[in-house]
Amino acid sequence: MKNHLVVQTDFGLSDGAVSAMYGVAISVDPTLRIFDLTHDIPKFNIWEASYRLYQTIFYWPEGTVFVSVVDPGVGSDRRSIVVKTETNQYIVTPDNGTVTHILKKLGIKEVRIIDESINRLPFSGESYTFHGRDVYVYTGARLASGVISYEEVGPLVPVESLVQLPISEASIDNETVFGNIDVLDVRFGNLWTNIDRTLFNQLGNEYGDGIEVMIEYDGSNVYKSTMKYGRSFADSGLGEPILYINSLDKIAVALNQESIANKYKIGTGAEWKIKIRKIR
Score class of each variant (00 low, 15 high):
103 L>I: 07
191 L>Y: 03
146 G>Q: 02
163 V>G: 09
156 L>Q: 13
106 L>E: 09
160 E>S: 15
206 E>C: 04
176 T>R: 08
133 R>P: 07
206 E>K: 14
117 S>D: 14
136 Y>C: 06
133 R>H: 09
195 I>G: 11
176 T>A: 09
175 E>F: 02
102 I>Q: 12
212 E>M: 07
105 K>S: 07
156 L>T: 15
176 T>H: 00
105 K>P: 12
190 N>E: 10
192 W>K: 13
138 Y>R: 12
207 Y>V: 07
190 N>H: 09
171 S>E: 12
160 E>P: 04
114 I>Y: 00
195 I>K: 06
162 L>Y: 05
134 D>K: 12
208 G>H: 07
144 A>Q: 07
213 V>D: 01
143 L>C: 07
120 R>W: 01
144 A>C: 06
171 S>K: 09
171 S>C: 04
107 G>Q: 06
143 L>S: 04
131 H>K: 11
209 D>F: 11
175 E>S: 12
187 R>Y: 05
197 R>I: 11
181 I>Y: 02
177 V>R: 13
112 R>G: 08
113 I>L: 13
131 H>L: 08
153 V>Q: 05
118 I>T: 08
161 S>G: 11
112 R>N: 08
186 V>G: 00
187 R>H: 10
209 D>R: 14
176 T>D: 00
111 V>M: 03
165 L>W: 02
150 Y>R: 10
116 E>V: 13
108 I>G: 10
153 V>Y: 02
204 G>P: 10
174 N>C: 08
111 V>R: 00
154 G>S: 05
105 K>I: 12
158 P>C: 11
108 I>T: 07
207 Y>N: 02
126 E>A: 07
146 G>K: 09
171 S>Y: 03
180 N>R: 15
151 E>C: 05
198 T>I: 06
211 I>C: 05
154 G>P: 02
102 I>L: 14
159 V>G: 02
120 R>N: 01
177 V>D: 01
112 R>K: 15
191 L>K: 00
179 G>D: 01
166 P>C: 06
139 T>D: 09
195 I>C: 10
188 F>R: 14
196 D>S: 15
113 I>R: 04
124 S>H: 07
135 V>L: 04
118 I>S: 01
135 V>D: 01
183 V>I: 15
142 R>N: 15
164 Q>T: 15
149 S>G: 12
120 R>Q: 05
208 G>S: 10
165 L>R: 12
106 L>N: 02
173 D>N: 15
166 P>H: 01
187 R>K: 15
157 V>L: 11
163 V>Q: 10
148 I>F: 00
124 S>Q: 11
169 E>R: 12
157 V>S: 12
148 I>L: 01
178 F>I: 08
108 I>Y: 03
176 T>Y: 00
157 V>G: 08
193 T>P: 08
211 I>F: 01
182 D>R: 14
188 F>V: 10
205 N>T: 13
188 F>H: 13
108 I>V: 15
127 S>C: 08
212 E>A: 04
150 Y>P: 11
153 V>T: 04
135 V>M: 03
214 M>I: 13
190 N>P: 05
197 R>C: 08
155 P>D: 13
141 A>K: 14
160 E>W: 01
204 G>T: 12
197 R>H: 10
131 H>I: 05
165 L>I: 06
111 V>F: 00
146 G>M: 03
171 S>M: 10
195 I>F: 00
134 D>L: 12
141 A>M: 13
